[in-house]
């Protein structure tokens, strides 16, 4: 049984996404450790190679584009650790994915409390 009808703009991290993104997510999971975050920053290509990233994974990592990372099988909980390396919050990545400025994105969040 599948999850159900697609919900616009809403990725579902199912078995097929998890299989596709396994190496990418495994690398991002490693960013729980500062030593690993520093190793990535010191030599990004070598670090990606160590985790066996596919060319699509590597391109998505290099793009720093969250929608591309999700399309490559990334899960947002692990990707948030990748974003953390650059000091980006979930508002920053929300703004990026929705094509808004950070201020507009924050205003959008607040507007839903009315």
């Amino acid at each position: 049984m599948t999850f159900g009808a697609p919900i616009p703009g809403t990725p579902v991290f199912d078995g097929s996404a998890a299989a596709k993104g396994y190496a990418l997510n495994k690398m991002c999971f490693s960013f729980n450790s500062k030593e690993n975050r520093d190793a990535f920053l010191a030599d990004e290509d070598a670090y990606c190679a160590r985790y066996g990233l596919s060319p699509e994974h590597v391109a998505a990592i290099k793009s720093r584009n969250v929608l591309k990372l999700i399309a490559a099988g990334g899960n947002v909980y692990y990707l948030a650790k990748f974003a953390g390396i650059f000091g980006l919050s979930v508002q920053d990545i929300g703004a990026q994915q929705t094509g808004r400025t950070l201020e507009d994105f924050k205003a959008y969040l607040a507007s839903q409390g009315a």
Partner: peptide
């Protein structure tokens, strides 16, 4: 809340 995708930022009070 929704963190991922084009619908990121969605809240339903």
């Amino acid at each position: 809340h929704q963190l991922d995708g084009e619908r990121a930022g969605f809240i339903n009070k």
